[in-house]
Design a protein around this nucleic acid. Structure first.
Lengths: 120, 120
DNA sequence: AGATACCGGTATCGAATCTATACCGTCCGA
DNA sequence: TCGGACGGTATAGATTCGATACCGGTATCT
């Protein structure tokens, strides 16, 4: 395939894309929206410890990048729904793998840390 | 499988692991060490735009977590080699996918951004 | 009608983090 | 002995982040 972009180049647009994906909370939001849309408050409750400010900023950035959609539902009472777009769903595949790696390698990392601490 | 860790819980150890993986430069270093060890200066040249401070700090943290090894080679002249450990190589699989996603979806994101800009 | 609660956020401020830039000691070859 | 590469540190400034408080609109309860 050999595409034209290379994240190692400082000025390559893919660098800014990777920077955005790697932002503190993006991986959480993408994983949270895995199998259904969610509301603002619902996301905030689901992703423990995220502040409303961080949530708002990350959602806005992801919407700007076309990863999620924001829909004001004119029901009674009205509310807002966030959902993954097709692009966001394609990102879910690698980011779910990252999440799973993190969850399944906790003991390995804790062991490495303990060993490093013992060494000193 | 159903492991005991869940990144969505604020106090779960997997959260700190994910935070570490998501740190600004980890994904670059893991991808840079893909197929061979590298020296400090080599890494700095390869990952364009990284500062020596950021490189040092990220390498130290990754070594602490057991993702890379740091070896002082007593050759002439002596030098230092950084390499992925087995654990680091296992992380390479998801992080390479993230990198590839970034490199292959630049046009999609640029299109979304342009459309968002036009809308306002 | 008034009080209360929930939703989807903003505003503000101090703390932590990241970047840019300059510098440093050691080793080596010329 | 001079210069340069290597593997970093030190310092300062800009940026980002997190904690906390607040706010306007809409229901619902009494």
């Amino acid at each position: 395939m050999g595409n034209a972009y290379n994240v190692m180049a400082a000025t390559c647009p893919s660098r800014t894309v990777l920077h955005r994906i790697g932002a503190r909370w993006t991986v959480f939001i993408v994983n949270a929206l895995d199998n259904r849309p969610m509301r603002f408050t619902e996301l905030k409750a689901h992703i423990r410890g995220i502040t409303p400010k961080a949530l708002t900023e990350t959602l806005r950035a992801m919407e700007y990048d076309g990863l999620i959609s924001r829909t004001e539902v004119p029901a009674n009472p009205p509310h807002v729904e966030y959902a993954l777009t097709d692009l966001g769903r394609s990102l879910l595949i690698p980011l779910r793998a990252v999440r799973e790696w993190a969850e399944s390698h906790v003991p390995d990392i804790e062991r490495a840390r303990a060993q490093a601490d013992a060494q000193r």
